[in-house]
Computed example of a mutant assay.
Amino acid sequence: MKTYTPLSEQVILITGASTGIGAALANYLASQFLGIRLVLAARNQEKLETVATYCRKAGADVLVVPTDIAIFEQGKALANKAVEHFGRVDALVNNAGYGQMGPVELIPTEAVQQQFQVNLLGPLALIQALVPVMRDQGGGRIINISSLGGRLAFPFGGLYSSSKFALEGLSDALRMELDPFNIKVSVIEPGPVTTDFFAVAAQRVEQAVTNPQDTPYRAAFNRLEGLEERTSSRAWTSERVAQVIVRSLTDRNPRPRYIAATGGDILLFLMNKVLPTRAVDAFWKRFYGINEVAKDWQNRG
């Protein structure tokens, strides 16, 4: 008979743990589950150490492993260090990720590759390294942090959504493949979150697209600047999303997907099941300013 190990006795590996959702999750686990063992990974060691200090004071045993998840070998090394230190990993939370915004036409190959390396190939490296460990120890959990953008595509988010669509497809296959080994796979789908997501997205746009105002998408780029403000009223805190992740870690029979967004279930139902594609397209084109692109382009002529 399969037994359930209390979360306080588990080893949890969290990527992207230096800020945002990852840091909030680490802090929450440390404060609520005395004695829990945490493996915290991200690129910024200084920020990681700040999170680790809080967690240790709360009673957690913490291993900090600075890692660039975009580098496949570093992901494998992270898994190995976690197992070497604690002897096991009970749950992997693939949280590290970012959104490459901008029109698909203009995103350079290097930025496309980086998006998929961080959002898909990095999680894959950890999964491949830890599945044998989890199988040998009798089970485990893999939690992949996706997005509502992993179920809905929208203008200027083509690269981000495609990476998250891929992560969700990978998760669905893994859920079935790993079930015989008592390894449970779940996806978390946040909506807008009050993190530095939009600041990072804006930075990535600047790095990827030279002179946005000189492109045919100028009107939509102008609209993009106010995206955070337009979504702020429905944004969740990182701490609130972290509590949903904890549910996926503690539910005896975890769900395939957990939506972490106000009205997210209704939005997905309407967009994917009820409204015609033309109506959905019209909504997103207005929201992201694509409907203004044609007029702006004609006026230039």
Score class of each variant (00 low, 15 high):
residue 42 A to V: 01
residue 216 P to C: 09
residue 143 I to V: 15
residue 286 R to S: 01
residue 15 T to D: 04
residue 226 G to V: 06
residue 119 N to L: 02
residue 28 Y to T: 15
residue 116 F to H: 14
residue 13 L to G: 13
residue 263 G to D: 00
residue 164 K to V: 06
residue 240 R to C: 01
residue 154 F to L: 08
residue 214 D to E: 15
residue 294 A to R: 12
residue 39 V to R: 08
residue 223 R to Y: 11
residue 57 K to S: 10
residue 45 Q to K: 15
residue 206 E to N: 08
residue 145 I to M: 14
residue 216 P to I: 13
residue 252 R to E: 11
residue 232 S to G: 01
residue 116 F to R: 15
residue 296 D to R: 07
residue 49 E to Q: 15
residue 223 R to L: 08
residue 124 L to R: 05
residue 54 Y to A: 14
residue 52 A to M: 03
residue 272 N to C: 11
residue 177 E to T: 03
residue 49 E to D: 11
residue 158 G to A: 04
residue 240 R to E: 12
residue 78 L to S: 10
residue 196 D to E: 14
residue 98 Y to P: 05
residue 96 A to Y: 04
residue 197 F to R: 00
residue 4 Y to S: 10
residue 26 A to S: 13
residue 180 P to F: 03
residue 101 M to T: 03
residue 191 G to T: 05
residue 279 A to H: 02
residue 78 L to G: 09
residue 280 V to W: 05
residue 239 E to Q: 12
residue 114 Q to D: 15
residue 166 A to D: 00
residue 106 L to V: 11
residue 164 K to W: 03
residue 33 F to E: 08
residue 219 A to K: 04
residue 154 F to S: 10
residue 290 I to C: 04
residue 195 T to G: 07
residue 187 V to S: 04
residue 81 K to W: 04
residue 93 V to P: 14
residue 85 H to N: 14
residue 13 L to H: 13
residue 102 G to R: 04
residue 70 A to S: 14
residue 141 R to H: 05
residue 194 T to P: 00
residue 143 I to L: 15
residue 211 N to H: 13
residue 289 G to S: 11
residue 139 G to K: 04
residue 1 M to L: 08
residue 81 K to R: 13
residue 221 F to R: 04
residue 153 A to N: 06
residue 190 P to S: 02
residue 142 I to Y: 00
residue 176 M to T: 09
residue 134 M to S: 06
residue 191 G to R: 06
residue 45 Q to L: 06
residue 267 L to W: 05
residue 239 E to L: 01
residue 284 W to K: 06
residue 94 N to D: 08
residue 298 Q to F: 09
residue 191 G to D: 04
residue 252 R to L: 14
residue 195 T to Q: 05
residue 58 A to H: 12
residue 147 S to D: 06
residue 46 E to V: 09
residue 65 V to Q: 10
residue 280 V to F: 07
residue 279 A to Y: 01
residue 82 A to T: 11
residue 85 H to K: 15
residue 258 Y to D: 15
residue 277 T to M: 12
residue 222 N to L: 13
residue 105 E to P: 10
residue 214 D to S: 15
residue 4 Y to Q: 09
residue 230 R to M: 07
residue 184 K to R: 14
residue 154 F to A: 14
residue 192 P to K: 01
residue 27 N to Q: 14
residue 86 F to K: 02
residue 106 L to R: 01
residue 138 G to F: 09
residue 125 A to H: 01
residue 65 V to C: 13
residue 244 V to K: 10
residue 237 T to F: 00
residue 207 Q to C: 08
residue 175 R to L: 00
residue 156 F to K: 01
residue 121 L to P: 00
residue 114 Q to W: 05
residue 38 L to F: 05
residue 298 Q to N: 13
residue 292 E to T: 08
residue 74 Q to C: 00
residue 248 S to A: 15
residue 26 A to K: 10
residue 12 I to S: 12
residue 209 V to D: 07
residue 128 Q to R: 14
residue 296 D to N: 05
residue 184 K to N: 14
residue 158 G to K: 00
residue 48 L to E: 03
